[in-house]
Design a protein around this nucleic acid. Sequence first.
DNA 1: GTCAGGTCCATGCGTTCGCAACAACATCCC
DNA 2: GGGATGTTGTTGCGAACGCATGGACCTGAC
Lengths: 165, 165
Amino acid sequence: MDLTEELQMTQGHELAGTRAAAEAWESLFRAQVALMRRFQRDDVWGPLSIREYDVLFTLSRCPGRSARLKELGEGSLLTQPSLSRLVERLEADGLVTRGPVPDDARGVAVTLTDEGARMQREIGRRHVRSIRRLVGGALDADELATLQALTDKLRAAQAAIPDPS
Amino acid sequence: MDLTEELQMTQGHELAGTRAAAEAWESLFRAQVALMRRFQRDDVWGPLSIREYDVLFTLSRCPGRSARLKELGEGSLLTQPSLSRLVERLEADGLVTRGPVPDDARGVAVTLTDEGARMQREIGRRHVRSIRRLVGGALDADELATLQALTDKLRAAQAAIPDPS
DNA sequence: GTCAGGTCCATGCGTTCGCAACAACATCCC
DNA sequence: GGGATGTTGTTGCGAACGCATGGACCTGAC
């Protein structure tokens, strides 16, 4: 342990080395970008953008294939206004419906239509083939399990760290 | 090993299970999105967008702080026209210069100016603090090293897999 | 040399995005 | 109840993006 880390620990934090964290993040980021570029090139998205597909995918895993706009926004990189208009387009295409939510007249419940669910499954089936090729073809089962465990832990632990005050 | 995997191996591929690959990718993707959202919220970017910073960062690691437009595009999610205009804006702000590249009159060499390098270092210094807090605070040194090794391997191995023919 | 095909970058144009402001509702405190 | 404050979603508008296309240049065959 070098002096910097020791100093940090005396301040009550158990932070791994700055360099190790930065390098791990960069590797994670670059891997995600590289894979995303390939997935984007894939001819599996039909009339949807990846962001639109991701919303349909998220909805397909929600109870009743329905979620509030706010919940959808929490798992997305889009800002709330952009998501609002994305959902507006999905509704115009007949893939989702927008309705009221019980017990909160402000809320908007976004619900997958049958056609939306069908579209999601169809694209998802093709997309998962690409994932198997590119991700499953790069790492073995143990490595995949380890990667999943680490990224799950990273996401959970990061969520527990407050914003700088 | 289940029947599906066995069948795949008889076809000459050593693919890990589809489910494991899909779940690992989703975890990786969600972790990246969650962290990215927090980094975006950080008040460290000054007048730049994250994408603009990423270009300056990439240039700062290139020999001579200079790279061709094409090379910059390979590590970015932006399309070529979008990157072209992003660099155009960076040039207008005095952060990069555009010049010819030796031995190829089509090429455009993008070079970091002193002010661009200073801006990148200043933002980078603040950004790396967030990375240490959120990434270094979530995983210990061993976990960071493992995560980096796996994502590096994933990126390299994926690059070696050809597009579907 | 020159012509065909490929690569690299820029530009026109319609779409999507983010920011700021706003409207509508919920919640809390009195 | 009633106003102050916070939350949820929408809208106006300028900025940025992606797609299609075009111009300039490189490469290879003849």
